[in-house]
Design a protein around this nucleic acid. Structure first.
Length: 644
RNA sequence: GCCCACAUAGCUCAGGGGUAGAGCACUCCCUUGGUAAGGGAGAGGCCGGUGGUUCAAUUCCACCUGUGGGCACCA
C-alpha cells in the first residue's frame, strides 16, 4: 500500500489516529463509504486539514480528514446555509422574477434578502416553507462549480440577477468564483454545502418577513428579507421555539401592564408614565444607587434641563448631536432640552477655582434627559425619548485615571451583583469616524484607558470605531437569566470636553492645567435598566426591590380588624403592603396575588386574629409558615433590607 | 426615517357592508368560605383619527397617528 506510483497515492489520517491510503484524487464521499455505509449516509461535509469543505472535494495530497456529521459543531452552520439556499430556490420557483441577493447564516438560523416589486408578506411564508420541504424531498444533488469572474457577471446579468452581478463585480478581476447548483437552480456561493438537499431535513421554520436595505445602507433600496430558523432535529427546533415563547412571557411591556407599573400614550411617544408601583421600584433603585454613590465618594448635584444653544454649540453637541435634541424658541433665544448632562457638570466644575488637591472631583446626577430617537427605534422602556440617567463625571488628573478606573470597576461589579447579574462582559471602543479632538489627543486618551483597564485586571474585547465623539469608552454588558446580553454601564475617557468648555485646575506648580473628564454610568438609564430587571426576574423581584412586598389577605371578615392593624404596622416600618379584605375565598385571593407576583402573602383568619400570628406563604411555594406577628415584622424588615 | 403587519370594552381577544360579541376585571345581591377561580344579576363601546366609495362603513379604499417585527440609527 505504501510506495505506490508517485503522485497518485495519498495518505489520509483520521481523527481516531488511524490512516488510510487511496488513489489520488479521493473524495470525502469515498472515504466515508470506505469506513462504513452508516457514516456515508450521515456525512455532510469534511474537515480537510482544519478547513470545512464539500464532501465531494477532490483530495490530491496527504491530509488529515474528519467526516462531519450532524453531530458536529460545524454542522449547524452548514444546515442553516443550505436552508437559506433551499429557501431562495423555493422563492424563485414560486415567484419568478424575484432576485436573490444575499443569504447568510445568523444566530439561530438564516435569512435571505430578495428584490421584488411587491414585498413578501407573512402569508407567503407557509407556501414557501411547503415548497422548501418539497425541494428537500427531491433530494437534489448540490454541485460546486468554478467560473471565471467575468463570465459569471455576464451570466447573472443575463438571467436578471443584477444584485448577484454587482456582488461579483466587487471581487477582484481575474479571480475565479464558485457557484453551487442544485437541480435547475444556481447560486453564487463560497460554500461549503451539503451533498444534496435531502440532507437538510425538515427541522427548519420560516419566522418573519422584514425590510432590509441593500448592503445595509439606508441610502439604498429596501429589499424584502425572510428570516428562518434551522436546527439539527425537531427537538432542537422545539427547544428554540420554546425559548422564544419564554422571552415573550418575560416581555417587560406585557409584565409592566400586568403589574401596573407604567404606560405609554400617543401624546408622549417614547416617554413613560410611571404608575405608583413602577415609580416605587424606580425610587428604590434610586435610593440604593444614591447610597452606593455616597459610599464611593461622589457628590450629588442637580442641573437644568433646558439650556441655551450657545452652550451646546461650545460643547460640540449642537453639531454632532443636534438632530437628536428637542429645541424650542422662547423670548428670542433657542433653547435645547439636554440629551446628556456632561456640559452642565462642567459648568458646576467651572465655578470657582479648583486646586489639584480637590481632584478627583466626582459629580453625580440623576439627570433627566431627552433625546429625539428615530420612531422606528422606540421599544418599550428599552429605547425611550425621555429617561433618567445615573450619570456622573469625574474630574481628575491623568495620573488618577488608573485608580479611578479600578474603583469604578469594583463599584459596578458590586452593584450588578446586588441586582442579580453575575456575568459581565466588557467592550473597549476606540475612536469613531466622526469625532472631536485631534489625533494626538485621541492617542493619549486611548492609551490611558487601555493602561487603566489592564491595570484594573479587566477582561475585555475590542469594539473598533465605536467610541463616543469625545473619547474612547468601555461598555459593560450584562447577561440576564435567559442568556440575553444588555449593554448598560459605560466608562469614558474624555480630554476633549474640558478643552471645549475650558475646564481647568491649578496644579502643584501654580499653573493652570486641564483636568481629564471621566464620564460614567452604571444603570445607563433607569427606564431601560428597569425593563431589563423586569425581564431578568420575570417580574418576580427580590423582596427589597418588589414594589408591593406583602399582601395581608383575610379568610373571613372576623379577621378584618387584625389585618388592618398589621397593615398599619407594615406602613410604619416602611414595608410596601396592601390589605385584601374583600369578600372572596382565600384560594381566590392566593391565586390572584400569585399572578400579580406579590412576593409574600400574610394570611389571617380567626385563629391568627386570636393568637396574634400570621400564616406566611411565599410566591412560588405552597408551603405555609406560622409566625407571631412581632417576629414576622422583625423578619420582614431584615429580609427587605437593601443588600449591604 | 424605511419595509411589512396590526389598531374592536379596563385587560386578552373573536367577528364582519345593514350602527357589535366572549372570557377576565368592574358594580350590586347571595355566600364568611383555611391557601391558585363559590353562585347570580348588572353596567360597560364614536370598532385609533380624517377623508373617500356606497342607499348604508366599525367592516372596502386612501392618508394620518400609534403599536409590533425587522432594517437603518444608538452621539
Amino acid at each position: 500500500m505504501s510506495n505506490g506510483a508517485k503522485n497518485n497515492r495519498v495518505t489520509i489520517s483520521l481523527p481516531d489516529g488511524s490512516s488510510r491510503d487511496y488513489d489520488s484524487p479521493v473524495t470525502g464521499t469515498e472515504i466515508a463509504a470506505d469506513i462504513g455505509p452508516g457514516l456515508l449516509k450521515a456525512a455532510l461535509a469534511i474537515c480537510l486539514d482544519g478547513d470545512l469543505v464539500d464532501l465531494r472535494t477532490e483530495i490530491t495530497r496527504n491530509a488529515s480528514v474528519e467526516i462531519v456529521t450532524v453531530k458536529d459543531e460545524d454542522a449547524l452552520d452548514l444546515l442553516r446555509h443550505d436552508a437559506a439556499h433551499v429557501m431562495a430556490q423555493a422563492v424563485q420557483e414560486l415567484f419568478p422574477g424575484t432576485q436573490a441577493t444575499i443569504g447568510p447564516v445568523i444566530e439561530n438560523g438564516f435569512f435571505y434578502d430578495f428584490a421584488r416589486d411587491e414585498p413578501f408578506v407573512e402569508d407567503d411564508l407557509p407556501i414557501i416553507e411547503e415548497r422548501m420541504r418539497e425541494i428537500v424531498k427531491r433530494d437534489l444533488e448540490v454541485r460546486r462549480e468554478v467560473w471565471a469572474r467575468d463570465e459569471a457577471i455576464k451570466y447573472f446579468k443575463k438571467i436578471g440577477e443584477d444584485y448577484k452581478a454587482e456582488i461579483i463585480a466587487d471581487i477582484p478581476a481575474g479571480e475565479d468564483i464558485t457557484l453551487y447548483r442544485q437541480g435547475e437552480w444556481i447560486d453564487l456561493c463560497r460554500g461549503p454545502h451539503l451533498p444534496s438537499t435531502g440532507k437538510l431535513g425538515t427541522s427548519f421554520k420560516l419566522m418573519k418577513v422584514a425590510g432590509a436595505y441593500w448592503r445595509g445602507d439606508s441610502k439604498n433600496e429596501m429589499l424584502t428579507r425572510i428570516y428562518g430558523t434551522c436546527w439539527r432535529d425537531k427537538k432542537e427546533l422545539e427547544a428554540h421555539l420554546f425559548q422564544l415563547a419564554e422571552a415573550e412571557r418575560r416581555d417587560h411591556r406585557r409584565i409592566g401592564k400586568q403589574m401596573d407599573l407604567f404606560h405609554f400614550q400617543d401624546e408622549a411617544v417614547g416617554m413613560p408614565f410611571w404608575h405608583p408601583k413602577g415609580w416605587t421600584l424606580h425610587r428604590t433603585l434610586e435610593t440604593y444607587m444614591r447610597r452606593e454613590l455616597q459610599k464611593n465618594g461622589y457628590d450629588e448635584i442637580k442641573t437644568p434641563i433646558l439650556l441655551d444653544r450657545t452652550l451646546w454649540e461650545k460643547s460640540g453637541h449642537w453639531e454632532k448631536f443636534g438632530e437628536h435634541m428637542y429645541q424650542m424658541e422662547m423670548d428670542g433665544r433657542t433653547l435645547a432640552v439636554k440629551p446628556m448632562n456632561c456640559p452642565c457638570h462642567v459648568q458646576v466644575f467651572n465655578q470657582g477655582i479648583h486646586s489639584y488637591r480637590d481632584l478627583p472631583l466626582r459629580l453625580a446626577e440623576f439627570g433627566s434627559c431627552h433625546r429625539f430617537e428615530p420612531s422606528g427605534a422606540l421599544h418599550g422602556l428599552m429605547r425611550v425619548r425621555s429617561f433618567l440617567m445615573d450619570d456622573a463625571h469625574i474630574f481628575c488628573t491623568e495620573d488618577q485615571i488608573i485608580p479611578e478606573t479600578k474603583a469604578f470597576f469594583k463599584m459596578l461589579t458590586k452593584i450588578y451583583k446586588d441586582l442579580g447579574f453575575e456575568d459581565v462582559q466588557i467592550k473597549f471602543s476606540d475612536r469613531p469616524e466622526v469625532r472631536a479632538g485631534s489625533d494626538e489627543v485621541w492617542d493619549r486618551a486611548e492609551a490611558a484607558l487601555k493602561e487603566a483597564v489592564e491595570a484594573a485586571g479587566m477582561v475585555y474585547t475590542l469594539n473598533p470605531g465605536e467610541g463616543a465623539f469625545y473619547g474612547p469608552k468601555l461598555d459593560f454588558i450584562l447577561r440576564d437569566a435567559i442568556g440575553r446580553d444588555w449593554q448598560c454601564g459605560t466608562w469614558q475617557v474624555d480630554f476633549v470636553l474640558p478643552e471645549l468648555l475650558d475646564a481647568n485646575y491649578i496644579g502643584e506648580d501654580g499653573q493652570k492645567h486641564r483636568p481629564a473628564m471621566l464620564h460614567r454610568a452604571i444603570f445607563g438609564s433607569f427606564e431601560r435598566f428597569i425593563g431589563i430587571l423586569i425581564e431578568h426576574y420575570e417580574g418576580k423581584f427580590p423582596l427589597w426591590l418588589a414594589p408591593l412586598q406583602v399582601v395581608i389577605a383575610t379568610i373571613t371578615s372576623d379577621a378584618d380588624e387584625f389585618a388592618s392593624q398589621i397593615k398599619n404596622s407594615l406602613d410604619e416600618i416602611g414595608i410596601h403592603a396592601k390589605l385584601d379584605i374583600r369578600n372572596e375565598k382565600i384560594s381566590y385571593k392566593v391565586r390572584e396575588h400569585s399572578h400579580a407576583r406579590v412576593p409574600i402573602l400574610w394570611v389571617v383568619g380567626k385563629r391568627e386574629a386570636k393568637e396574634k400570628t400570621v400564616s406566611i406563604r411565599r410566591l412560588g411555594s405552597s408551603e405555609q409558615q406560622s409566625l407571631p406577628l412581632d417576629k414576622a415584622l422583625l423578619a420582614i424588615i431584615e429580609e427587605a433590607r437593601m443588600p449591604e
